[in-house]
Amino acid sequence: MNTQTQNIIYDNHGRPITYLRLAVTDRCNLRCFYCMPEEGVKYLHKSKLLTYEEMIRTVSVLSELGISKVRITGGEPFVRHNMIDFMYQLSEINGIDELNITTNGILTGQYIRQMKEMGVRAVNLSLDTLDKKRFFEITRRDEFDKVYDTLFQLIDAGFEVKVNAVVMDGKNTEDILPLVGLTQNHNVSIRFIEEMPFNGEGNHYPKLAWNLHRILAEIKSQYPDLQKLVDSPNSTSYNYQVPDFQGNIGVIAAFSRTFCGTCNRIRLTATGDLKTCLYDEGVLNIRDLLRDGITNEDLKSTFLQAFKNRPKDGFEAERNRKSVITESMTTIGG
């Protein structure tokens, strides 16, 4: 990674913006219940997506404004051709001192050596269950063995591994305690995530059945001595550890939105929509600006203006929407 003395930019609520979640594709080789509908997914034509060159240019401009951390998301990043070469290019941008990735693990194992070489430190692995049958029911694909094997390859390779498990009523709540059990002998972080309405269909439930408090109560039913850890600045998760266990546990209140006050992240979708909040509709389209010939200086000014009109939290962003949430997480980038 290449570091440089950087600016620090703040939004209109005094929050620094240092972290970009960059979606590189809307395609995925799974069909997870909470992320996208089983059928009828209309993938975008390649021309609608940001090119690698456009993404490199955009990240370079953002790095000059103060972005120092990039997480690659999707869809599933590794379904896009030449992804590992693109990651090498990202890792060489001045000012980007942290490059991470979120993946479902199906195609990831073959790239572990290259990711280590370029300095990737942290990998988030999506895995909602340790049961092969439930994995198929949730993802609609028979890929559990491959994902489970990738998990331990990543741990053995020394990555900071976080397992992202979306908690879904009637789908995988019986997996909460087995997933916590993984932290006993493995240096891994298990992060339980409240389900969000970004599945291409809207909310599945009239209200959220498994929120932060109920998830914690379930964990404490078997581990009553669960200890609270100190959360890092800008953390989206409330973090805990079972005494004497190697790993740790986090709960992300993604639906309750209790972490918005310290949010330091922005999102860029695969089509170039800038989202200054997960729950907004996209505040402008970077792809169109680039293809219309915008200069880097004007692009910087456009970013800064967007950052100065950021909603206070996800509830305000949702209220400001012109339409109800119907998009899927695969089009948003997580």
Rank of each mutant, 00 (worst) to 15 (best):
T5R: 10
G14N: 02
T18F: 15
T25K: 03
L30G: 01
L30E: 08
C32V: 03
M36C: 03
V41D: 03
L44H: 13
S47K: 14
K48L: 11
Y52D: 14
E53H: 08
R57W: 01
T58L: 12
S63C: 13
G66T: 10
S68F: 14
V70W: 10
V70C: 09
H81W: 09
I93N: 02
I93R: 00
L99N: 04
T103Q: 00
G109L: 12
R113V: 12
K116R: 14
M118S: 10
V120T: 13
R121F: 11
K132H: 03
F135G: 04
F144H: 03
D149S: 08
D149P: 11
T150H: 06
L154P: 13
D156V: 09
D156G: 10
K162F: 11
N164P: 04
D169C: 06
D169V: 06
K171A: 15
L177P: 05
L179S: 09
V180K: 02
V188E: 10
I190A: 03
I190K: 05
G200E: 11
Y205S: 13
P206F: 02
N211M: 12
H213I: 11
H213A: 11
L216C: 07
S221T: 11
L226V: 06
L226I: 13
Q227V: 13
Q227R: 10
S232F: 14
P233C: 09
T236Y: 03
S237M: 01
Y238D: 12
Y240R: 06
V242G: 14
D244Y: 07
D244Q: 07
I249W: 04
G250R: 03
I252N: 00
I252F: 00
A253T: 10
A253H: 00
F255E: 15
S256T: 15
R257E: 11
F259W: 09
C260P: 07
D273M: 11
D273P: 08
T276M: 00
C277A: 00
N285H: 01
L290Q: 07
D292A: 14
T295R: 08
K300G: 00
F303K: 01
F307R: 05
F315H: 14
A317M: 02
A317H: 00
N320M: 09
S323T: 14
S328N: 04
M329W: 02
M329S: 02
M329H: 07
T331A: 00
I332Y: 09
